[in-house]
Simulated scan of single mutants.
Amino acid sequence: MENKEGFLSSHLEITLPLQTTHSLDFLGLHQGYGLWEQANYSESVIIGLLDSGIGPDHPSFSDEGVSPPSAKWKGKCEFNGTVCNNKLIGARNFLGADRGNITRTPFDWNCHGTHTSSTTTRNFVKGTSMFGEANDTAMGMAPYVHLAMYRVCRGPGCTYGDILASLDAAVEDGLDVLSFLL
């Protein structure tokens, strides 16, 4: 392989274990003390995620203890009603932007975006368990952060046009961090 024209490098294939439920412990982040608390759980930071949408009524997106977003936030909530709050401050749909035909809501029909955004930004949810076992408080990496979801993916994937349209909007909305969890 090394003798082939254009070859730059190779890496040995390895398998890494999933670390979603114990990542906070691994990083030494504990509720109530330490660096995480000193950083106020990322309060006032605005994170935007590009994914398959969001289930806004999920308990992970409660705004209990979350301050209102700063005046720099210019985004919007495209859900009917008042489902956005101080936690989920924005939700926009860009499916169809590649064809100039945006007609859907930012609701997450396959739960991928809801899952990835709750892993990242979940507020403290007390009393979580798996079939009644391991009852504890679930939390994301940045529980007091503000969240904006940009729906750019549908069942089979995400198109460049939808992604690019959402990137333009995300920059104008005033995000601090933008994450592609595709």
Rank of each mutant, 00 (worst) to 15 (best):
A170I: 11
C84H: 10
N80T: 09
M139E: 14
G55M: 11
M139W: 15
L50R: 02
D136I: 09
W36N: 04
T128P: 01
T105L: 09
P106G: 07
D51Q: 03
L178H: 04
N3R: 10
E43H: 04
V152C: 03
L88K: 05
L50Y: 10
T15N: 13
H22F: 08
S42L: 09
N3K: 14
E133V: 08
I89K: 02
Y41K: 04
A134T: 11
N40W: 04
L50C: 08
T128W: 10
L182F: 12
F26T: 13
N123E: 07
E2Q: 14
C77L: 02
A39T: 09
H58Y: 01
I14G: 06
V45S: 12
T114D: 08
N80C: 00
D176A: 03
S10K: 15
F26R: 14
D98W: 05
T120R: 00
P69I: 03
V171H: 06
L12G: 01
C84W: 09
Y160D: 09
D136V: 12
S117N: 08
G140R: 09
V177T: 06
S179K: 04
F26G: 06
R104G: 14
G174N: 02
V177P: 06
H22L: 03
H115I: 11
D108W: 07
R122D: 13
L29Y: 12
N3S: 14
L49M: 14
T15F: 11
V171A: 12
R151P: 00
E64F: 01
S62L: 01
T121I: 14
H115Y: 15
P106H: 10
V66E: 03
F26N: 11
F124M: 12
D168Q: 15
E172C: 00
E43F: 00
G28C: 07
K4I: 15
H22D: 15
G127C: 13
N123G: 13
G140P: 04
P143C: 06
C111P: 00
A170G: 08
A138Y: 13
N93K: 06
I102Q: 10
G113R: 07
V66L: 01
N135C: 02
L12H: 11
F7I: 03
G28K: 09
A39Y: 03
S23I: 15
C111M: 13
P68F: 00
M141L: 15
G96W: 08
T159E: 10
D173Q: 05
P59V: 01
P69L: 02
M149V: 13
N80V: 07
T159D: 06
I102Y: 05
F79I: 04
L147N: 02
T128H: 02
W73K: 05
A138I: 04
A170C: 10
T121K: 06
T20K: 09
Y41Q: 04
E13T: 10
F7L: 11
A97S: 15
P69S: 08
S60G: 12
A71G: 12
E13C: 03
F131S: 12
F79N: 04
Y160C: 00
S118M: 11
G157E: 08
A71F: 00
G132F: 09
L181S: 15
V145C: 12
G53F: 11
L88F: 04
S117C: 07
